[in-house]
Simulated scan of single mutants.
Amino acid sequence: MEEKIDLHMHSNYSDDADLPVAELISRCKAHGITTLAVTDHNSADSVAEACALADSTLRTISGIEIDCTFNGRNYHLLGYGFTPSDDFSQIHRNFSELQRELTPKKIETLRHCGLIVDENALAELAGERVPQEEQMAEVILADERNQDNPLLHPYRSGGPRSDMPLINFYWDFFGAGRPCYIPVSYPAMEQMVDVIRSNGGTPVIAHIGANIKQQYQEVLSGMQKIGVMGIEVFSSYHTPELAAWLYDFALNQNLHVTCGSDFHGHNKPKIEVGQCSYNASQLAAIRRFTDSLMP
């Protein structure tokens, strides 16, 4: 079987994703994935379940994706091959508490934009999880009282942002500099690098092309100095040109090369598991990384 690797995907241990771990693993097998990591947001709760589902056709690696701050900007840091500990449980507790505190502020900013947010519907949709911006978008778009609001036309059928309306709403309303943006400071990347490495793991910067659009070399060099050991080169968010540059940079700097789809489910319907493009030599570089994590 041709090897297929995806090291960035989310189960329903992430507040903004859909599938239980077992269903996610089954989906990966159906798409021919042979090596994977489930990287839930600020949570290592999926690790034991995902690793227990490994078999002769599928290797699983422990994973997590952590929100953190570097030089005044927020990024996502992936961790691989670590042994779960209370360090990661504390990260999840802190993140969930912060998100709960921010939820009413997010709703208030949406209302200031003239959007009606039904908090009962939002609570029902979120269930026991912390409501996410994509769920707010889902409730807003479904509410007939918002039907004629021109701000929502781009996200409705046929609109320019209707291909992935929920995540596009999140980026357009809550991204840095956008109308509902709320500044928030996450833990320092250096601290999160230390947590991953002290638990036997490898820290890798995620989809940097989704966070910045220039000065890649300067930013990545700074991250390398604080202990980041790899780059998610092949990502749903990277153009072929950026991926090629990141690949060369990683090899030149002795950084690990990884790949990931960032599959979530219905919040990102255009992104499927295994949606990474790499050639045979690039796959060999990714495999060198995954092999380094295996016992």
Rank of each mutant, 00 (worst) to 15 (best):
H76T: 05
L77S: 11
L78P: 15
G79Y: 12
G79F: 12
Y80W: 06
Y80N: 05
G81C: 10
P84T: 10
P84V: 09
P84R: 02
S85D: 03
S85C: 07
D87C: 12
D87Q: 11
F88P: 08
F88T: 11
I91D: 05
H92T: 08
R93Q: 03
R93S: 10
N94K: 14
N94M: 04
F95G: 00
S96Q: 09
E97P: 08
Q99N: 03
Q99E: 08
E101F: 05
E101W: 06
L102Y: 01
T103W: 14
T103V: 13
K105S: 02
K105M: 02
K106F: 14
I107H: 05
T109N: 00
R111E: 07
R111K: 15
H112E: 07
C113R: 11
I116A: 06
I116V: 01
I116T: 03
N120S: 15
A121F: 12
A123I: 00
L125A: 09
A126Y: 10
G127P: 03
E128A: 15
R129L: 01
V130I: 14
V130A: 10
P131V: 06
Q132F: 12
Q135F: 14
E138I: 00
E138K: 01
V139E: 06
I140F: 08
A142R: 15
A142E: 09
D143V: 13
D143S: 11
E144Y: 05
R145I: 14
R145T: 15
Q147Y: 12
D148G: 11
N149H: 13
P150C: 03
L151D: 00
P154R: 03
P154E: 05
Y155L: 01
Y155Q: 02
Y155F: 04
R156H: 04
R156P: 03
S157V: 14
S157E: 12
G158K: 05
G159L: 10
G159T: 05
P160I: 01
P160Y: 06
R161M: 09
R161Y: 04
R161L: 14
D163F: 02
M164C: 08
I167C: 00
I167Y: 14
Y170G: 06
Y170L: 09
W171Y: 15
W171G: 00
D172I: 00
F173Q: 04
G175I: 13
G177W: 09
C180V: 06
I182H: 00
P183Q: 04
V184F: 02
V184P: 06
Y186P: 07
Y186C: 00
P187N: 11
A188I: 03
A188P: 01
Q191Y: 07
M192L: 02
D194L: 02
D194E: 13
D194R: 04
V195F: 10
V195C: 11
V195G: 06
R197F: 04
R197Q: 04
R197P: 12
S198T: 08
G201T: 06
G201R: 01
P203Y: 00
P203H: 03
P203I: 08
I205E: 08
